Structures are given as C-alpha cells and as structure tokens.
Amino acid sequence: MLQNEIHRQVRQKTELDTYIGKFLNNRYLIRDLIGKGGMGRVYLAEDVAKGGMAVAVKILSMNLANQQLSQRFAREIFIGAQLGRKSTHIVRVLSYGVTEDKIPYYVMEYLQGKNLKQILKNETLKIPNFLEICHQICLGLQCAHQGVSIKGEIFPVIHRDIKPENIFIIEDDSKDRIVKILDFGIAKFLTERTGITLAESFIGSLPYCSPEHMEGRKLLDVRSDIYSLGVLMFEMLIGKHPFQIKSNSFADWYQAHRFQMPPMFEDIAPQISIPKELKKLVMSCLAKEVSDRPQDISQILVVLEQLQRKYNNLISDNQKNIQNQELLQLVPVTSLSEKICLQKSWPKNQPIAPICFSHLLPTPQGSVPTFWAMLAKKEIAKFIDNNNYTEFIFQKNLY
C-alpha cells in the first residue's frame, strides 16, 4: 500500500511538472521540485556525469524571448559563479545551459539543511548561535561587496534581497554550522559601466528593504544590504520583525522603513538578555539615513568578533568551574583516615593529635597529589586567613 501511494504521488508530481523525470543536456536527471519563486523553479537533480551526485537546478520561468529576464538570468549565473568560488558562504554555481524549449537554467551545489526562516519558526537563537550565523553572513556579504572582476576591473555587488529565506544553514560531518547566502540573481552592480541594467520594476522583499531601495534610488550601495541585515538581526534576536504594519502594501512598508523608529529590545522582549554592544550595532544598521549606518561590513565584523571572543571566554570559564565542581565530587574514600575526614561531625573517639595523610586525587587530566588533614577550628581559620599561595579544599562544618 505504501509503495502504491509513493508511485501515485510521483505520477501526480510528474503530471503537474513536465521537468520531473527528464534529462537536461543529457546530463542532469530532474528528480523533484524543491523550491520556486518569481524568477523560476529549483529542482533536485542527479549529475550522471558525476556518478549521480546530487545537484540543484534552477530553471527560469520564461524563455529567452524575454530579453530582460534572460539578461538578468545570465547575470545571476555570472555573479554566482564568481562569488561562489571566492566565498564558502555563497552558494556555488557549477554549470549552466538551456532546455529544449530555449529556457535557460543553471546548476548549483545541492544544500541539505534549512533556511533561516524555517529555523526561526521553531526557535529563538541563543546569543552564541546568533553571533556564529551573523558572522558567516557578513563574511559572504563582504566578499560580494568587494566585487567581481569584469574585463580586468573590479565591480562591487550588492545583494538587494537579504532575508531569512535567502540564508541557508547546513551542517557538515563535524556538526559545525555552515551558512550560505542564496540568490544573487537580483543583485545590482554599483556602476553602470558594465552596460548591464535592471528592469525599472521594483525587485526585493518589502519587509527587508532599505528606505532608499524602496524610493528607487539608482545608486544603491552596500549600506542598503546593511539595513536589510539590521532587520534580519533584529528578527533573529527577538523572533519578531522590528516594524508592525496594518497591511502588506508597498505604501505601509515604505512608511515603516522611512519614518517608523524600531522599538527598543527591552520594551518588546524584556526576558531576553542582549549585550548592549549588540543592541547598539543592530540599531545603527537600522538607521534611516545611510550615513548613520556602519559604512561597510568590516565595521560590523569587528563588533561581532569582539562579542564572539567574549562569549568564548565565558564558555571557557564556565567549563573550568564545572571541572572544579567535578573535582570536589570525585574525591574517593579509600582508607579509614579519609573516611573520618569526610564525616560532617567530629567522631566520638576523636584523636588527641591531628590526622594527616597524602592521596593521589584522580581527575580527567590525570592524578593530582593532595594532602589531607583533620584540624581544630582555629587551625583551619589560620589557613583561610593566610591562603596566599596554596589551594585548599575543605569542609568548614566538620565539628
């Protein structure tokens, strides 16, 4: 029964999508639809020339008869190919071509994991995880902003659509998170010297657009991406968008981005502890005027890396404290004298002289030589007052 249901679903998908089950360029076998958007659809495929290696294939929604879309798609291929080779944090473009119907496609590395939107639906990120993800996003954006080479010249590239859906998070074999930025297909060159121009229509996601982007300014720069990153960081920290609107219209979003001030973190999420440096960074990224924001990604990276070092030190200190607590609990009882010392009250047949003995204390780092003694209260007090160079583990309520 289960096998019949699987076959039924496959047939249904095939009927709805003519690409599933077919080859592209006699090389890429389309297996399943895994995503779709305004510019095209993304499929899971097998590269038969690479032994069936899984790849992702993006196919444009329209054929090459639409010159503007085909130019934009060609630019997406070109930018993705260059940036993917330069940065681990930008999805790699492997190949490209056209279908039998003259519809262009390109092949990307296949990523397994979740996008940030899916993750934020189920959890609020802890500060160390937030810093790790943001750091990698910034490294990818920094690579793009540094530019691609065209005819020997370097032209910076901005993404123009930074949002949770375009941030993909995978885990490698070592369980470390690797962050990839997707979809540079609507990126814009910061100069028109390339001879490549965008259509006049608005391109972007309204909840994450900078005010100047929504105003249609032709000379957008990297600070537009920084604003979008600020919206994204706010949402990652709080789980809510910084701006509340009545409708999803262009006019309402423009009013919010241009005139509405973002709320203070403590006003909407007082239960979440956020470092003041991080609050200041996010608010500066959300500044309405471009001159009030960080001027490039490197300024953001400085703050993130300082906070990462701070949290790494805190984690290291906490681990040391845990180890010290474990040492106190690992004291073995192996002789009569030690048993007497670990009692909480002075034994009835108390000795007329102090009890002293040595012991090798086992720890995860190896055996540590220790010296044990049962002393009178006033003697213990002397050790406490004058403990300048020796570490003592003791019980004050022995008697």
Rank of each mutant, 00 (worst) to 15 (best):
G37S: 06
I59L: 14
S247P: 01
I340R: 05
Q365S: 13
V93E: 12
S210Q: 05
V48F: 08
L44Y: 11
N115H: 12
I268H: 07
Q271A: 08
V148E: 13
L131A: 04
F184Y: 14
W346P: 00
C209Y: 02
E123Y: 01
L60P: 02
R258G: 00
Q306L: 10
E215Q: 15
V93H: 14
S87E: 05
L64Q: 13
K180A: 02
L69E: 04
V303F: 01
Q323F: 15
L60H: 05
P104K: 10
I272K: 09
C341T: 13
L278H: 03
V282E: 02
R41T: 07
L94R: 14
P270I: 07
N166M: 06
I90T: 04
L139Y: 01
Q67V: 14
K377D: 14
M283K: 10
S61R: 14
E15D: 01
F394T: 03
D17P: 02
S337V: 14
C285Y: 01
Q255E: 11
S316F: 04
I90C: 10
N248S: 14
D221T: 02
K22T: 14
I238E: 08
F184V: 07
M1G: 13
L125Q: 11
V179I: 11
P211V: 01
K320C: 01
F202E: 02
P362L: 00
E171T: 13
V93N: 14
I6P: 06
V302C: 04
S149N: 14
F234N: 07
V148A: 10
Q12E: 13
L141I: 02
D296V: 02
H359K: 05
L314F: 06
I274Y: 09
K121P: 00
L327D: 12
L190M: 14
N129T: 12
G80R: 08
G52E: 03
I297L: 13
M108Y: 10
M374G: 09
L33W: 04
D296M: 01
S345G: 00
G37H: 10
V222R: 15
Q118P: 00
V331G: 03
Y110K: 03
L44P: 07
P369V: 05
K180W: 02
S87Q: 10
R11E: 08
L232R: 03
N66V: 05
L328A: 06
I196M: 13
N318M: 09
K382C: 02
H257K: 04
K22A: 04
R258V: 10
V148L: 11
I103G: 02
G195A: 08
E215R: 15
L29M: 11
L198W: 00
K378C: 03
R223I: 09
L120W: 03
L69K: 07
L2H: 11
M53G: 00
A376L: 11
I34V: 13
V179L: 05
G147R: 10
M53F: 12
K310P: 00
G35P: 05
F155V: 15
Q319V: 09
Y399K: 04
F371E: 10
R72P: 00
A287D: 04
S291V: 11
L328K: 15
G152D: 12
A376F: 02
S335W: 01
Q82M: 14
F234M: 12
G230K: 09
V157H: 09
V55S: 11
N312H: 06
L361D: 07
Q82E: 15
I119N: 03
V157C: 13
S298L: 09
S345F: 06
I297W: 05
N248C: 00
L198I: 08
K279C: 06
L190S: 03
